[in-house]
Simulated assay, not measured.
Amino acid sequence: MPYSKLSLDNYLPYRLSVASNAVSGLISTAYDSLYGLKIPEWRLIWVLNEDGPSTQQALVKRTGMDKVTISRAAQALAKRRLITRAPHEHDGRSHHLILTPEGQRLFNDVAPSAVEFEKEVLANLSAEEIELMKDLLRRIEDAALKTQGRSGSR
């Protein structure tokens, strides 16, 4: 297809970004007003709940967020006593972020809302379409990471 015929509305990176921004915006407004949480903060709470104590480097890999975003989210959560930091047993320059009991309670309060938002956003899709979409998104992510790895080594 000639570049002059390329439509932004049909360009996959654009569609993914717009869809992600729409969903994140919806959720962000609700989480901020109800719980005082920004999306990166909620994502860290969720990962720490699911994975247990993690280093900031592990959180960068797990969430796809950059170091600065992780650091700011961690500082905000620590200030609210939702997470705590513990020394890393093998790396004196690093530390583990750990969900506190208060952070766990907040996760337990927010999680049902997260599930409801997901249900609302996906309401027009069948169970099969949802599973296919999740599989396709994982495959797109894997392909992008592989391509990034190849281009990073040039």
Rank of each mutant, 00 (worst) to 15 (best):
M1Y: 00
P2I: 11
Y3K: 06
Y3A: 06
S4M: 04
S4D: 06
K5N: 07
S7T: 04
S7E: 07
S7K: 11
L8F: 05
L8S: 04
Y11E: 06
Y14V: 07
Y14R: 12
L16C: 12
L16H: 03
L16K: 01
S20T: 12
N21S: 11
S24P: 00
G25F: 00
L26V: 01
L26A: 14
S28L: 04
S28V: 05
Y31M: 15
D32I: 02
S33I: 10
L34H: 15
G36N: 10
K38S: 05
I39E: 00
P40I: 06
E41T: 02
W42I: 08
R43H: 05
R43S: 09
I45D: 01
W46A: 09
W46F: 13
W46K: 10
V47Q: 09
V47C: 04
N49S: 07
E50N: 07
E50K: 10
D51I: 03
G52M: 07
Q56M: 06
Q57M: 11
Q57R: 15
Q57F: 12
A58H: 03
K61R: 14
R62L: 14
T63D: 07
M65I: 03
M65A: 11
M65W: 10
D66H: 03
S71N: 12
S71Q: 15
R72F: 01
A73C: 04
A74E: 06
A74S: 13
Q75P: 04
Q75W: 00
Q75F: 00
K79S: 13
L82T: 00
I83Y: 03
I83Q: 05
I83S: 02
A86P: 03
P87N: 13
H88A: 14
H88D: 14
H88S: 13
D91Y: 09
D91H: 09
D91L: 05
G92P: 09
R93T: 14
H96G: 02
H96A: 01
L97E: 05
I98D: 00
L99T: 00
L99A: 02
L99V: 09
T100S: 08
E102I: 04
E102H: 13
G103V: 03
Q104P: 00
N108S: 15
N108M: 12
D109K: 15
V110M: 13
A111E: 14
S113P: 00
F117Y: 15
K119G: 07
K119D: 13
K119R: 11
V121D: 05
A123E: 11
A123C: 01
A127G: 03
E131T: 05
L132N: 06
L132E: 12
L132C: 10
K134D: 01
K134C: 01
L136A: 11
L137P: 00
R139E: 15
R139L: 08
R139G: 08
E141L: 12
D142L: 14
A143Q: 02
A144E: 04
A144Q: 08
A144Y: 06
Q148I: 10
R150T: 14
S151D: 08
S151A: 07
S153W: 05
S153K: 01
